[in-house]
């Protein structure tokens, strides 16, 4: 484990360094508070720190205060090392954000024991963060495919549409549905159906850029959001994504299957500022058109009278997409 020693006096610094190296730590040494702060604010910097109270540039309590004001960073366990020893000073040190306090000259055994306390606290924090991240993942992801769930992808889509509007860019929304999926479930069973959905999710995810989003919108419906997507290239990219699903058979427990997908595609730049629900409705109509055109294809949602007619027709009929 990495540990930072901030001590301006060379002899004490070397002594601490050697003591902690012997205890198995990966030691980083600095000579003043400013350098200490730089180290502690680094990505993957040390999470354990021994800080001298009196230091040039920034003193130990100053480092503690600065570290504690950072938001969203991993916890740093800080021990102030000092020859100061009055109750007032102890309170001041702890109030500045230090976790512990050790008077100089230190006793090696006590120092090691106190650092082990720090390690236990950091381990506890790691476990809590892991548990929180697991809960956050479960709340935002589909348990079968591990893709973003409907709520999460809708949130991201809304955010992305606002951003593209601000930056005068275009977002491409792709709503895809697996063709004849019901037949897979009915004839081969839900286990095979699930295998197909998981593999399709993987293929969709593998076909987009790291900053695009893919979510499971419903049973066999998937929503793909292509951020900052040039409208001239969007249809081509959508076609590539569609083909990525059907380009080779999916191996299942009941043999290979070759599912295809139909897509509705919408470019936000074509539609101007409209609520996300409205845009999703329009892309849904385009998907319906793709299904009507024989499936295994995509249709672009364009504003115009034709879309409105279809929209009215759709709202009157209960649809079965399969």
């Amino acid at each position: 484990m990495k540990i930072l020693i901030a001590e301006d006096e060379a002899l004490s610094r070397r002594l601490l360094e050697k003591t902690l190296e012997r205890a198995g730590y990966e030691v980083i040494t600095v000579e003043n508070g400013k350098q200490a702060l730089e180290q502690l604010c680094k990505h993957e910097g040390p999470r354990l720190a021994l800080l001298d109270w009196v230091m040039p540039e920034l003193d130990g309590p100053g480092v503690c205060r600065a570290v504690r004001t950072r938001a969203d960073q991993t916890y740093v366990y800080m021990v102030l090392l000092t020859s100061k020893g009055s109750k007032e000073e102890t309170v001041l040190g702890l109030e500045s954000g230090a976790d512990d306090y050790l008077t100089k000259p230190f006793n090696a055994e006590e120092l090691r024991a106190r650092l082990r306390v720090g390690e236990r606290i950091l381990l506890l924090e790691d476990r809590l963060v892991e548990a929180r991240e697991n809960m956050r993942f479960r709340a935002t992801h589909d348990p079968l495919t591990s893709l973003l769930n409907r709520g999460a992808i809708m949130d991201l889509l809304s955010r992305e549409l606002n951003r593209s509007r601000r930056e005068q860019k275009s977002t491409a929304i792709l709503l895809g549905d697996v063709d004849h999926f019901k037949r897979v479930n009915d004839t081969l069973g839900h286990v095979v159906g699930d295998e197909v959905l998981v593999e399709i999710a993987n293929r969709l995810l593998g076909s987009v850029r790291s900053y695009d989003f893919v979510g499971r919108y419903g049973g066999e419906e998937f929503l793909v959001v292509l951020n900052s997507c040039d409208p001239n290239y969007a249809p081509g990219r959508a076609e590539d994504i569609r083909k990525s699903v059907s380009h080779r058979p999916i191996q299942t427990a009941k043999g290979p299957l070759s599912p295809t997908m139909s897509f509705g595609v919408l470019l936000s730049a074509d539609w101007g500022p409209r609520p996300v629900e409205e845009l999703l409705h329009e892309v849904d109509i385009a998907l319906y058109e793709a299904k009507g055109a024989g499936r295994d294809c995509l249709r672009l949602a364009k504003p115009g009278p034709q879309a409105e007619v279809l929209s009215a027709a759709l709202s009157q009929s209960a649809r079965r997409r399969d």
Binding site: D8, E9, A10, L11, S12, L15, V54, S83, K104, P105
Partner: peptide, 9 residues
Amino acid sequence: HSLKGMLSN
């Protein structure tokens, strides 16, 4: 203060 540190160590 510095001298105190090195001497006490």
